[in-house]
């Protein structure tokens, strides 16, 4: 019997360290979720189960507005990033060895590792220099810029394993190049594009730093709203809205990975 030495063949030491690691990661979140259902007004005192803070949220006009702004920004920027990111991935994978290819691919990846503060600040400088009215659209553009590279990475890895003879077959049968891309390539890499969209959406939705730099009066995103409220003290409603955000992000990430996996499956079947 193995169970004496641990679970599923893991030693007791491994089980303990995994449990500690998971606790470290998820205990704060678990506490937040549990306290969002706290009946008591005092955040630190347990007063029994209740959903009253969720109901209260429905009447918090400012919070709802911020949530709506965030949703719109996330959807718009994720869509723009998916289009641009896919095009960039196609260019990188397909264009062969054009001049400056290495530099171009390096530049696409840079935002992945760039500190957000720097990205945010440089975007702010750009918007100021362009004399753009800062608000909803500047945040959307900033988020598109930042999330684009994530889409590119996801789509690029799919394209690298894409069988080009499928495109050749389409053209051979009389399909012009652009139509081939739309009717053959895009449907087949779509899971990767959708995964990229999900990723971009969640990244945009929970971004605080870049939004803070690039926004102006009148456009407050949800994370900004939460942050400013928390500075005045943690209210139970905040726990509730954060729980909703966690749920959304979790759904988004799981959906993205499922889509990516489905793409892998389709590829394996096609092979």
């Amino acid at each position: 019997m193995r169970s004496r030495s641990g679970i599923g063949g893991m030693s007791r030491f491994n089980v303990t360290s995994v449990a500690l690691g998971l606790a470290f990661l998820y205990l704060p979140i678990a506490i937040l979720v549990i306290y969002s259902f706290n009946a008591s007004r005092l955040v630190t005192v347990w007063g029994g189960w209740s959903t009253r803070w969720y109901v209260a949220l429905l009447h918090d006009q400012a919070m709802l507005e911020a949530a709506w702004t965030s949703l719109r920004i996330a959807a718009l920027s994720a869509t723009a990033a998916s289009v641009l990111g896919t095009l960039a991935a196609v260019a990188l994978v397909r264009a062969g060895r054009f001049r400056g290819r290495t530099m171009f691919s390096g530049m696409v990846y840079a935002p992945l590792v760039m500190p957000e503060v720097i990205t945010g600040l440089s975007l702010l400088l750009l918007f100021v220099a362009l004399d753009a009215a800062r608000g909803f659209w500047t945040v959307t553009i900033a988020h598109t810029t930042v999330t684009l590279s994530f889409v590119t990475v996801v789509v690029q890895s799919r394209l690298l394993s894409f069988d080009r003879s499928l495109e050749e077959a389409a053209m051979d049968l009389g399909c012009p190049p652009l139509k081939t891309f739309l009717t053959v390539t895009l449907p087949l890499i779509f899971p990767a594009v959708a995964a990229g969209w999900m990723l971009a959406f969640t990244l945009s939705f929970d971004d605080l730093v870049i939004a803070t730099f690039s926004t102006g009066p009148g456009a407050t995103t949800l994370p900004m709203r939460i942050y400013s409220e928390v500075r005045l003290g943690v209210k139970p409603e905040i726990n509730a809205i954060c729980t909703i955000m966690i749920a959304m992000v979790a759904v988004g990430v799981v959906a993205a990975s499922l889509l990516a996996k489905r793409g892998e499956l389709a590829k394996a079947r096609a092979a």
């Binding site: 003879s165 050749e168 077959a169 053209m171 051979d172 009389g174 081939t180 053959v184 087949l188 079947r269």
Partner: peptide, 20 residues
């Protein structure tokens, strides 16, 4: 003449059937 305008069709070694 680009491939899509040639009255020539090819059967690919890998078949290249559209999986979707």
């Amino acid at each position: 003449v680009p491939p899509h305008r040639r009255p020539v069709n090819m059967m690919f070694q890998s078949y290249a059937l559209f999986p979707h």
